[in-house]
């Protein structure tokens, strides 16, 4: 991987971490407004480190839910990170996942790092994208959370700046190379359709999980042009 592509990956990772920082600030403000302390907010950003789960947890607490009632939703939204671990294990290689390093690597397995890794073709670039995004995003998400928790209502709504549009746009951009094949396109369209249909029917977090079986079916189907053994 050339010097140039590393710089390009760092730039993309910084852009992603930049808007994550803005959402971290928004999270910090919402969390404190929901009745959590600054310390509780920061434990979430440092240990949970998964935006959807964090917003869901403080949302339930803020709407008056008993503390533990908020846990299942947060966990359900976190299950997809377990699924991401499977392709990332292969991409990251044994060294990143041996012994204590695995404990650190695991914490960085989120939507953004997975998307940045699969958005590249070659393994070295995929690995570099995972680490660059993971480290930068962890730093800015937590810095943003702290600023938001301390600054409270002074923090504006990221939606005013259109930052919420960056999230689907970024994931689409990173998926783009995977849509070059017919199989990739079918799997993506299938996943999006299943999730959309399920949005009003199932709890938050489930629509994304429900897309996983489509990947399983696509992976297990014999491919055209491939010799089918047996």
């Amino acid at each position: 991987m050339g010097h140039e592509s590393r710089a390009a990956i760092r730039r993309d990772a910084a852009a992603m971490a930049g808007y994550a920082g803005a959402f971290g600030a928004s999270f910090g403000a919402v969390s404190v407004a929901s009745g959590l302390t600054v310390w509780q907010t920061m434990v979430l950003s440092l240990v949970m480190f998964s935006g959807a789960s964090q917003f869901a947890l403080v949302g339930v607490i803020g709407s008056g839910g008993a503390g533990l009632a908020a846990v299942p939703t947060a966990l359900l939204l976190g299950v997809r990170n377990a699924f991401y671990g499977v392709p990332l294990t292969r991409i990251l290689g044994r060294r990143a996942l041996s012994g204590p390093r695995r404990l650190v690597t695991a914490q960085l397995v989120i939507d953004e790092t997975t998307a940045m890794a699969v958005g590249h073709d070659e393994e070295p670039a995929q690995r570099y994208a995972f680490w660059a995004t993971g480290v930068l995003l962890f730093l800015l998400w937590n810095a943003g959370s702290l600023a938001g928790a301390l600054g409270g209502s002074a923090i504006g709504d990221p939606a005013t700046l259109g930052l919420d549009a960056m999230i689907p746009a970024a994931f689409l951009a990173l998926l783009w190379p995977r849509l070059r094949t017919a199989e990739g396109r079918w799997v993506a369209v299938g996943g999006a359709l299943v999730a959309t249909v399920l949005i009003p029917l199932v709890p938050a977090g489930v629509p994304v999980l429900a897309a996983a079986p489509i990947a399983v079916v696509a992976g297990l189907l014999p491919r055209r042009g491939r010799e089918v053994t047996r």
Binding site: R80, F83, Y84, V86, P87, T89, R90, D111, T114, A115, V118, D164, I167, P168, F171, L172, L174, L175, R178, E183, G184, V187, A188, V189, G190, G191, A192, L193, V194, A195, T196, I199, P200, A204, P207, V208, L209, A210, A211, A212, I214, A215, V216, A218, G219, L220
Partner: peptide, 30 residues
């Protein structure tokens, strides 16, 4: 082999689903 093929497709399906949720989920309804 089959696990590797599923693993390759897993993020494609799930990230596409995530894009759909970001676009069409309005507090639990469409």
């Amino acid at each position: 082999d089959d696990v590797q093929r599923v693993a390759t497709m897993l993020p494609v399906a799930m990230l596409a689903a995530l894009v759909a949720v970001e676009l069409f989920d309005s507090a639990g309804s469409l």
